[in-house]
Design a protein around this nucleic acid. Structure first.
Lengths: 334, 334
DNA sequence: CCCCGATATGACAACGGTGTCTTATTGGAC
DNA sequence: GTCCAATAAGACACCGTTGTCATATCGGGG
């Protein structure tokens, strides 16, 4: 049968409560006793029941990661970052996909919390900006940290990168290479980052004294298909762009694919830039110039915030990095 | 504070136990009573504590998905499949990454089970073939189902596709297009599927009366880099292959990338084939001819097996599909 | 009309830990 | 030598459910 604290206490020759103290690293346990208990725990290969700890105590040793993001790469990186920090803490991570559009979002999150008693929650974009979710968490007084939120929310901590600056940097990079007609593919409307990247693009143009042309800007949904469609629209213009900056790598791959299809040589006929630096960026030809987003680190830092006993509200910014690869090149003198 | 069964029972005017009965859909509850309880549950927005249910009852309403796979696409698809079936069942999924190579693998899994009391486990490759993991699960008498195991194990259910046949099909496809010198990139040695795909390649050659040339076969590790390296080695041979079949899409993308780099035109100078049909296959140029592996369906079916009350051992095979796209073409007559 | 199995409900003790309170036992400071 | 705070350990109730057993009512066959 199951090994319980009782068994451990018998072997160690101490009370149940003392074993519990050792397990929880409490003060006021003699070294001698601690040693005996630890030996007994090891001998029996004892792992305490989370269910019992949760029920009796005030912690559940579990946190939830709530996400609704259709990019496997992104989710995977976030999960890894959160998980890495959790494992250091001896805490379990519950990965919880949701649908931000669902009218029952708040209920689902509330149910999750009631069922699991999680100690805290990590929110990943775009759930970071779903009012229903935020309200529910606040109503319950659950501590949570947001990864790359798009909206300000003074009352909770967050960890993010500067999407505006990053898009500005990339656009500036293209301008410095001599491009003047730079197409832009906007991201999914659900994600606030889409607006920010769009704004960064615009800001860089302004600064360089290049007029913003709505015709050079196309909507997208962060997926390959929408990148292809945007590229088609842009490249059929009579005044074609010489470079296209897509708001993420998947869409950039779509642009690349369409360019190949119509026989364009990237980067000589057309420069293409992406955003995120997912592994995909290096799996296409030519490898994508893109912005490295430190997703794993963001997730790790967010989880760290969650575990930090200091309840101060912190907004931590992590640095992005321009990854210049083969898909962009200086404009050919013609 | 927390809403408990007690509150529900008070509102509904019945005993705690009766509420519990309704929650668990037990027999012997009158329609009238069931209705009253359901109303009270809805009114209070009650969700039962999993911790308490686990502790008191014989089920935990949780299953674990254990994996160690470095392909985000694959993991994501598996998680989705398992999760979809879990949500129908009202069961929680614990996604648990592990390191198959770790000497403490069995301990970690044992600890997971002790801590969480999971009702069952889904194993994804390559954990499916880690003896330490299998032994631990058996010792504890936990029910588990394996997704795409590489080894036979008569005592537990599994869900899989026929890797040998699929690789055979792909190789045959290339042969039918006129290719005779077909390079092959083997997968990661940890994965049994690697051997099976390798074997399928060989079987197709045999049947077609083409000699197996060890020089045309290169080791790989399922990642982009290793695909590139293999391509380099193969394409520097004096007797170059006219087609390269890589054991997965990432490596095929590597082959593609190297081919582009040295100025080859795919598919006219070289045909390239992959395996898995990850989204990546359509994010490269030209889109990859590959084998669609029904990962989501496999995961869903495996979870279904786990929930099935019938304890019969079932080995369920799901069908693969050849996805012919632009990266392969008939050999040019020269 | 009586008895019995099927139906419907409740009382109460677990489940395996932690929180709180109580009870020694120390080792200085006065 | 006495007193008190700090240290060390145990007793016991309780967390929110489910399992088991007891009890009550109902409908139909003899």
């Amino acid at each position: 049968m199951r090994v319980t604290i009782k068994d451990v206490s018998r072997i160690a020759g101490v009370s149940i409560k003392t074993v519990s103290r050792v397990l929880n690293k409490e003060k006021y346990v003699s070294d001698e006793t601690r040693r005996k208990v630890e030996e007994a725990v090891a001998a029996l290969n004892f792992s305490p029941s989370l269910a019992a700890r949760t029920l009796a105590g005030s912690r559940s040793f579990q946190i939830a990661l709530i996400y609704d993001n259709h990019s496997p790469y992104y989710i995977h990186a976030v999960q890894e970052g959160v998980w890495n920090r959790c494992r250091e803490e001896g805490v379990r991570m519950l990965a919880q996909p949701v649908d931000v559009e669902s009218p029952t979002l708040a209920q689902e999150i509330g149910g999750l919390i009631d069922e699991t008693h999680v100690d805290g929650v990590i929110l990943s974009s775009p759930v970071t900006d779903a009012p229903a979710a935020l309200e529910e968490l606040e109503r319950r007084g659950i501590r949570f940290v947001r990864i790359s939120p798009g909206t300000n929310h003074a009352l909770t901590s967050s960890v993010f990168m500067d999407d505006v600056q990053a898009a500005d940097d990339m656009t500036t990079h293209l301008i410095n290479q001599g491009h003047r007609r730079i197409g832009f593919v906007i991201g999914h409307p659900n994600h606030m980052a889409s607006d920010q990247r769009h704004f960064g693009y615009r800001r860089a143009l302004d600064r360089a004294g290049i007029a913003y042309e709505p015709g050079l800007v196309r909507p997208g949904t962060f997926d390959f298909e929408s990148g292809m469609e945007a590229a088609e629209a842009l490249l059929k213009l009579s005044a074609k762009p010489t470079a296209i900056f897509a708001s993420n790598d998947d869409m950039a791959a779509g642009v690349l694919s369409y360019a190949h299809r119509i026989g364009l040589d990237v980067p000589h006929d057309l420069s293409v830039a992406g955003f995120d630096d997912t592994p995909l960026a290096q799996l296409v030809w030519p490898p994508l110039t893109t912005v490295r987003q430190p997703v794993r680190e963001l997730a790790y830092a967010a989880t760290d915030q969650l575990f930090c006993p200091d309840p101060a509200i912190v907004h931590q910014r992590l640095q992005h990095e321009l990854m210049v690869r083969g898909s962009t090149a200086p404009l050919r003198k013609s």
